[in-house]
Lab assay of single mutants.
Amino acid sequence: AKPPKTVTVKVEVTNADGETQTRTVTLTNLPKDLKPGDTVTLPETGQTARIVEITP
C-alpha cells in the first residue's frame, strides 16, 4: 500500500474572537484539484480554514 500523500498548506483560520490567523498545517489525502482560496476542515480542530498557499 502506498503511504498517504501529505501536503503542507498555509491556511487562514478565523478564531472565536473573529481574528484571522495564518497557520501552516500538514494534511493528508487532499483532493487533487485543491487550490488556494478553497476551504478545508482542519481535522484536529474541526475549524474551517481557507487555503492561502499549497507547498507541493
Rank of each mutant, 00 (worst) to 15 (best):
K10V: 15
D33V: 07
T26Y: 11
L42R: 00
P3L: 07
L30W: 15
L30H: 11
P43C: 09
D17G: 06
K5E: 11
P43W: 10
K10R: 10
G18Y: 02
G18M: 03
L34R: 02
A16G: 09
K10L: 15
I51M: 01
T14V: 13
T55W: 15
A16H: 09
K10A: 03
R50M: 11
T45K: 03
K2V: 13
K35N: 05
L42T: 01
V25F: 09
T28W: 08
T6Y: 15
T48K: 09
R23I: 15
A1W: 13
T45E: 03
K5Y: 15
I54Q: 02
A49G: 10
Q21H: 13
G37Y: 02
V40C: 03
L42E: 02
T8E: 06
K35T: 04
V13H: 03
V11Y: 11
P4K: 08
I51P: 00
T22G: 03
T45D: 07
L42A: 01
T6W: 15
P4H: 12
Q21M: 14
A16L: 08
L27D: 01
T55G: 11
K35I: 05
T26A: 04
L30K: 03
T55N: 13
V52F: 03
T20I: 13
A49D: 00
T41I: 15
I54F: 08
T45Q: 03
T6P: 10
T20N: 04
P56N: 14
T24I: 15
T45S: 09
T28Y: 12
L30Q: 11
A1C: 11
N29G: 13
D17C: 09
T14C: 07
T26E: 09
V11K: 00
Q21G: 05
D38I: 03
A16F: 09
T8K: 08
K2G: 13
V40D: 00
R23P: 01
T41W: 15
P4F: 07
V25M: 10
T22L: 14
I54Y: 05
V25Q: 02
V7I: 12
G18R: 02
P4D: 11
E12L: 14
D33M: 08
T39G: 02
T6S: 12
A16E: 12
A16M: 09
E53C: 09
E19R: 12
K2W: 14
L27W: 08
E44R: 08
V7E: 03
D17H: 11
T6N: 08
P31T: 14
D38Q: 04
G18L: 02
V25Y: 11
Q21T: 14
E53L: 07
E44D: 15
V13K: 01
P43V: 06
T39I: 15
G46S: 04
D17A: 12
T8S: 08
E44P: 05
A16T: 08
N15Q: 06
P43N: 05
V25L: 14
P56L: 14
T8W: 13
A49N: 00
T22Q: 10
T20W: 07
L34P: 07
A16R: 08
N15P: 02
T39P: 04
T45W: 05
D33T: 09
T26L: 10
A16C: 08
Q21Y: 15
L34W: 13
Q47E: 15
V52R: 03
I51R: 00
T41E: 07
R23N: 03
P4W: 05
V40L: 11
D17T: 08
R23C: 10
P56H: 14
R50V: 14
T20A: 06
T55D: 11
Q21N: 07
V9D: 00
K32S: 14
R50Y: 11
V52E: 01
L27F: 11
P36S: 04
G46I: 02
V13N: 01
V25R: 01
K2Q: 13
V7C: 10
T55F: 15
T22A: 05
V40T: 02
V13Q: 02
T28K: 10
K2L: 13
V40Q: 00
K2I: 14
T39R: 06
P43G: 06
V40I: 15
N15R: 05
T28A: 11
P4M: 11
V40S: 00
Q47K: 04
D17M: 11
V7L: 14
P36M: 07
P56S: 14
P36R: 05
T14F: 12
P36A: 08
D17R: 11
V9G: 01
L27I: 07
E19M: 11
T28R: 13
L27V: 04
Q21S: 12
V13I: 14
D33P: 07
A1M: 13
K35D: 02
L27G: 02
T41G: 03
E12Q: 11
K10M: 10
D33C: 10
P4R: 07
I51T: 00
V7T: 09
P3E: 10
E19W: 13
V25T: 03
